[in-house]
Design a protein around this nucleic acid. Structure first.
Lengths: 209, 209
DNA sequence: TGTACATCAGTGAACGCGCGTTCACTGATGTAC
DNA sequence: TGTACATCAGTGAACGCGCGTTCACTGATGTAC
């Protein structure tokens, strides 16, 4: 909570906007639900009054959307930062998956905000996309990386996959399920993290040893 | 919404309790979040006034807990109903997993109420359990069935798994991830349902063809 | 250099709402005499 | 068989709360003359 703040300078349109998003992200991290992102709580955290938010966002929902978008961008950036485009494809796949799990484990609430409810961002109530459409969509960053890694393994003769999209969907499902179950059921006697991850990757990406 | 109702007879302690849980389940099914289970809305649905609920539940949280427990019981019962104990172990595994996905697809909100947030039911803030403790816990019904199916495949020489618990955890993660992603991202160009399920089972339970 | 003014970031009071929970109560029903 | 009474399922008003959103406003700051 910011107790006192100086009024922003004249042309500083974006500054308060960022502070609002930062405050909203903090609320999400603390409480674990986007429901906790109320305009009054966000304003409290940013050291302003609630009506000020309307200069930067249409309504409460727009603030939540910005939070989700920011979180998704952070996930994409994390994955890109960690994947060396010229490294061994099997290594790239392992490193990328490990980073994905790390993000989900360290920022579970942001991860759930992205994939846990809805995914209405992009297009509301529209028909399903084809695989080609989905791969070309700018919002599919994270999944595209996964498909590319598996295709790279196939090209290098390290995977027997005959359908990189299919196997990427299978692996993504497993990564997502492991992440969310691990977060929500900490009492479960989980096997060793690295062993389980390796098993999921090896078997679902059909890697050859 | 029940518009009119007769007063319950004298010794009918459980009747209103059941009607309250039914109303709460309907709210969950309609709105998709346990947050929608408010005492006033539950009462409206049951045709009573909100304070009447306190005769049967300590507070709002107790109602939500009852809803989650009821949902979990339904899942366990569905799995048991569908698994023939004397059938071919590979078939049992497939049938059980398919039923699991069916439950999650047809009652996505109940499924998420069970596994989506917390899992505090059982023991709050307690240490992780050992595998043996978890398997013996009466609340582990669904997972125990999965382990048993895989162990059955191994015993029949149809699986090369050397650690049924490990592989069950992997398969469960994948089933859970596929279920929740499928619910939350209907726009994603999912591969054929049966193909993906077969791939997950075959590879993660290490079935031999 | 000095002053009037337009701009605009942010305020503070107010609205109507649905909520969880409390409290004193009502009135039908089964039972004791 | 008739009547007084205890039981108890359920009511209705009220409380204080935090919420999203609106509205007229204030007051510091940059700019035009």
């Amino acid at each position: 909570v910011i107790s006192s703040r100086e009024r922003n300078a004249r042309g500083s349109g974006g500054r308060l906007r960022d502070e609002i998003v930062t405050s909203a992200l903090a609320l999400l991290d603390e409480t674990g639900s986007t429901d906790a992102i109320t305009l009054r709580a966000v304003a409290r955290g940013a050291g302003i009054t609630a009506p000020s938010i309307y200069a930067h966002f249409a309504d409460r929902e727009a603030v939540v959307e910005a939070v989700v978008e920011e979180s998704f961008q952070l996930l994409s950036d994390s994955l890109h930062a960690v994947i060396d485009p010229v490294a061994d494809p099997v290594d790239r796949l392992h490193v990328g998956c490990r980073e994905y799990l790390r993000f989900a484990a360290e920022m579970p609430h942001r991860y759930l905000a992205i994939f846990g409810h809805g995914w209405d961002h992009r297009d509301p109530a529209q028909a399903a996309m084809t695989q080609a459409e989905f791969i070309d969509d700018p919002g599919s960053e994270a999944f595209r990386i996964l498909v590319d890694c598996i295709a790279g393994c196939v090209a290098a003769g390290r995977s027997t996959s005959t359908d990189a999209f299919f196997d990427a969907a299978a692996l993504w499902s497993a990564l997502h399920g492991y992440s969310t179950l691990h977060t929500n059921l900490p009492h479960f006697p989980w096997p060793d993290d690295a062993d389980l991850l390796s098993a999921l990757i090896d078997r679902l990406a059909k890697l050859t040893q």
